[in-house]
Computed example of a mutant assay.
Amino acid sequence: MPINWTSDLDTGIPVIDQQHRRIVDFINDLEAAQVLGNQEKIKQVIYDCIDYTLSHFAFEESMQEEAGYPYCKPHKKVHELFTRKVAEYQQRMELGDDIAEELHGMLARWLVNHIKRDDADYVASVRASMTPVAAAPVEEKKAGGWLSRLFGR
């Protein structure tokens, strides 16, 4: 079942919310590829999702560090544990295991819980340190380029 973005997933930090929405898109794309049984599309979505999520983690961690968030290190540890778990799925996939359904379920549960619990904890620190320009909503860009890939489609 696809993840529908709901307001309770918003952190109130526009750039982070946009990145989280993009990760939700990847998770939903994985489900769609799985329904079609398209193994090449499944692999591509998984690789793209992993790449994007790692970039998101680095961006989120840098925002926390700049804000002086006191629990940066534990939050980074959560990201590292998640990354290891996903790497295990990726290895299994490369060995020929059909991991799409299992990975989809794990990603969906983990992301929602992570946003509502772990990410919610740093929001006040980060928002307090943001300049008004950085706190403004980010416009979606249709043009390609690294900024549009990082912050949306």
Rank of each mutant, 00 (worst) to 15 (best):
R22E: 00
L103G: 04
F26N: 01
D97K: 15
D98L: 10
L103P: 04
P74M: 11
F82H: 10
K76P: 00
Q39M: 10
T53L: 07
H56Q: 05
S125Q: 09
L9W: 02
V123E: 03
W110D: 04
F59K: 08
Q19N: 03
V24M: 03
P74D: 06
L107H: 03
S129M: 08
A128T: 06
V138A: 08
D51I: 06
L36R: 15
D51K: 15
L30G: 02
Q18T: 04
Q19L: 01
A58P: 02
G37I: 11
G145H: 05
R149I: 04
P74Y: 10
W110I: 04
I13N: 00
E31Q: 14
F59I: 01
H75L: 10
V15W: 02
Y69K: 01
E94P: 04
E66T: 04
K141Q: 12
A124E: 15
A136D: 13
E139Y: 02
S62M: 13
Q18P: 00
V126K: 04
Y71L: 13
E94R: 12
A100V: 05
K116P: 07
Q90N: 13
A128K: 15
Y47K: 15
C72Y: 14
V112Q: 05
N28L: 03
D29Q: 14
A87P: 00
D25W: 08
R127E: 12
M130E: 11
A87R: 13
R153T: 03
I50H: 10
R127G: 02
I23R: 03
G152P: 02
L95Y: 04
A143Q: 13
K76C: 08
K77H: 12
D51G: 12
V123T: 08
Q39A: 13
H56G: 07
Y47R: 15
A128H: 10
E88N: 11
G152D: 00
M93T: 01
G105K: 15
L150N: 09
K142N: 07
Y122K: 06
G12F: 12
G144C: 11
L95C: 05
D10M: 06
G68K: 00
V45D: 02
L107F: 07
V123F: 09
R22T: 00
A32Y: 08
M106R: 07
P132R: 13
D8H: 11
T6N: 09
S55Y: 07
E31H: 15
S129V: 05
N4D: 09
E140N: 09
L95F: 02
R84Q: 10
D98F: 09
D17G: 02
K76E: 14
T6F: 02
R84S: 01
A135E: 12
K85S: 07
R149E: 13
V112I: 15
M1L: 13
N28V: 00
I46W: 03
R117Y: 06
E31M: 13
E80M: 10
D10Y: 03
Q19T: 06
Q19E: 09
